[in-house]
Amino acid sequence: MVKAKTPLYREFTKGLWRENPILRMVLGTCPTLAVTTTAINGISMGLAVLFTLVMSSLIISLVRKQIPNEVRIATFIVIIATFVTVADRTIAAFWPAVSKSLGPFVPLIVVNCIVLARQEAFASKNPVGRSVLDALGMSVGFTLVLLILASIREIIGSGTWFGMQIMPPTYTSWMVMVLPPGAFLMLGMLIAFSNWLNAKLEK
């Protein structure tokens, strides 16, 4: 296999920057835009995706040789949906407040392109160790971008960070930031900034 030559650590680090799911591949933008109104929501969503992605990659990479090509997508979806349900029910049982604020976006991880894309593109073709590292890197990259985006939106839009008041009391919140237009604007700026940074770094 060609991939076998890549050093192991790079399977992890590529998700952070070079192949970052949001900034580079612009995958999974639906939860990215929808739940990043507060930092706590952003990080909860990121962790739910991390759990789902790592567990699905682990299982699928384990049984990758047994899955016939014709039913691979169906198999991936059943496995992904199982772990999404595990994540969703667990959050609902132990953190009802988080579950309420994330709303339908946890169950919607099933159709999150990042999760399915990593199975199709990576876990079904690579050994367990690499698949888990890849899944970890991707979901950590996803979580970091979500956290940055959510922090910017929460600080500007509500004057708080993780619910703590950090702006002076006289600060007027920029409501647009917690509304959908603010999500699109900030994600656009973030991608523009990362492209600019990337161009600088490659020089």
Partner: peptide, 10 residues
């Protein structure tokens, strides 16, 4: 439109 969405009360 940006101002309207940001500062609806003023």
């Amino acid at each position: 439109a940006f101002l309207q969405a940001s500062f609806p009360i003023p």
